[in-house]
Amino acid sequence: MIINSILSFEFPPINELLRWRDVVPGLNKVGLIAIASALIGTLIFLSAARKDPKVAPKGTRNLAEVIVEFIENNIIMQTMGRDGLGWTPFLLTLFLFVYLCNVPGIIPFIQMPATARMAIPMFLAVLVWVVFNAQGIRHQGPIGYFKNLMFPPGVPKALYILITPIELISTLIIRPFSLAVRLFANMLAGHLLLVIFALLSEALFQARDRILIPIGIFPFFMLVFLTGFEVLVAFLQAYIFTILAAVYIAGAVHPEH
């Protein structure tokens, strides 16, 4: 209130921050970022695949191999083991797409993570849900999969009254919901924080009262710090999304884990 009255500064509602003009009808900035990230990922791997694999990797080839090894060593080997290596393309695509959709949130003049809108996280979460359920049904049969899901082995029979609904809800509803909401809410919260500090420092730098102008340094420092923090968050959220997808798929393929 006080700040508002001193600076004549009003924080815009969130939906105005997320309002983008359509580039062409039906395609806005978020769709453009999604297309660009798919394109960038494809280009990196296309240029990597065209290089001579025999010589020491450089440039995009090195980048692509680092990503592949990161997925294989830090995600698949940690959660699915050696026989999960066939999932490399899917998890790699998931990781790269989510990361490249997160990163525009901190690139100057773009400043909008595509995952801060619900559409892409929701689609990816539903896709992961479909994939892990399909894998469970394929590897354990429909009856065996739902039996293991509802009646997890190694639990006293009397506890099934309590556990069966919890397991069912948590696997079939909470998992995709939390997967989508985690990514979306993290990116939206980061975006809002950046917007808040950017608007606050702008309002202070342009204040009519001269004494307020130097104070604008503090929100500006906070803005720089949060941008650095968002670099970490963009990577971490892509990593967590991918590793949770790997854990769900591994749990559906091998129910004993």
């Binding site: 939390s178 909401v181 919260a189 967590i240 590793i243």
Partner: peptide, 15 residues
């Protein structure tokens, strides 16, 4: 990171 992801989900649902 897995544990943090599960725990953090609650705060984010609040958001």
């Amino acid at each position: 990171f897995l544990g943090v992801a599960f725990t953090e989900a609650l705060a984010l649902i609040g958001f």
